[in-house]
Design a protein around this nucleic acid. Structure first.
Lengths: 227, 227
DNA sequence: GTATGATTAAAACATTTGTTTGAATCAGTC
DNA sequence: GACTGATTCAAACAAATGTTTTAATCATAC
């Protein structure tokens, strides 16, 4: 009765006390992000979570349900870290909102100082959707694009039709996401590392590039001059 | 000597007589692009190629070697379809070269009217590199980026340092590749299809957007006015 | 302490998957 | 036709993998 052998002490890295279910989600997230759904094995997940092989099926039913649970966890984590209003005040100008949007997106996608598997897992789901993409669009991408739509519409006059709005949105999103999608190639070709200060400069570049572009297109609503 | 049975006729769906090795590469390309290296099975590949299960190992040694062969085939195919000089004349202006570059890249990435697995396979390799990425950079991506570097340098004054040149390059590449990387999301959110005329308009948008941006940055070398 | 329900553990199961084997078939040459 | 080397075929093998099973262990309430 006192031979309690500390079922959850010092497992793996450092933390204690975490429930098996939680550890499984954490471990599965890392491994799914790294190897994909097919490439990840229940055995490796269980091993990293210091859990038994049967734990996955006991707690989640099967591997696929675990994947959905991991993705759901990833979504809510991203939502709370990056809420739809991205830390701008109601008095912020559209230009400030755009810069905040770009900055936030870049950091979300490039910052390697914190666990990066949420981003990589979502990128994987975007590139090769499973049934879970619907959820992701509804909870994350839809609102994100909706927010950007508002910002862009505030920046360009109402002469702009939907196609132009969308094109500008995609031009902005594309510039940001490129650094994530092509990170291995960039790293090999230019030996570039994305520390916080580099990300900061990148966000400034993309904002100027995009604002300049929209201004030159003659559709910028409020005259903008970068310093 | 005259019983040549047309080994390369209509090898698309069901015909026989095409060399087994070629059919395996074709089938493997499609399936690797669709399911990834892990997800693709030699049984499905063999079935689609109308070949025996042992054919892969007989002709290529193992599955991995087949993958490299497929990728190599994909590279050379892309090279001959889109040579480094992208159909511009020596007299072309830098603006024309940029437009041609963007147009070519967009069509390469979005045109669904021709077999699309080359693009998807390369995108997969870029997102999650295997040992084959080196080859790909050396033969395709390196020259491509090099070409764009020259074009961008011709467009912006020599006041521009390398960082600015790279940033502009990435802004251009990012805009183009976004439509491929996010195609499923775009399709679900905006029900957009990428026919040739849409791609044409996209390429015009990206060119104007980028030229406008660079002009507004005050670094455009030759004054450019879009009509 | 005992009973109960939840959780964990070790082993085994069934299927899939890459690969190999050995015989059969084909193409070309004498 | 017979020989030869290349190719195809059906079958089997060995390893990996998701899942299940059955017993042990834990937490908790009585």
């Amino acid at each position: 009765m006192f031979d309690y052998q500390g079922k959850a002490e010092m497992e793996g890295s450092d933390k204690k006390g975490s429930d098996t279910r939680e550890r499984l989600i954490q471990a599965a997230g890392e491994i799914f992000a790294q190897r994909g759904f097919k490439g990840a094995t229940v055995r490796e997940i269980s091993r990293r979570a210091n859990a038994n092989i049967a734990a996955v099926n006991y707690h989640f039913g099967d591997k696929e349900e675990l994947y959905y649970e991991v993705l759901k966890n990833s979504l809510s984590s991203v939502i709370e870290k990056y809420p739809p209003d991205l830390g701008v005040t109601p008095e912020s100008t559209p230009e400030e909102r755009l810069h905040a949007f770009i900055r936030s997106l870049l950091f979300r996608v490039l910052d390697e100082s914190r666990p990066t598997w949420h981003t990589r897992l979502m990128a994987r789901e975007i590139a090769e959707p499973t049934a879970a993409l619907e959820q992701m669009i509804e909870n994350i991408l839809g609102p994100l694009y909706g927010y950007l739509t508002v910002v862009v519409k505030q920046l360009i006059s109402d002469k702009a039709n939907d196609e132009l709005v969308h094109n500008c949105m995609f031009s902005i999103m594309g510039q940001c996401l490129f650094y994530h999608n092509a990170r291995h190639v960039i790293s090999k070709l230019y030996h570039k590392k994305f520390g916080p200060e580099v990300i900061e400069r990148l966000s400034t570049h993309i904002m100027r590039f995009s604002l300049g572009a929209m201004k030159d297109l003659g559709i910028l609503d409020t005259p903008y001059t970068h310093k």
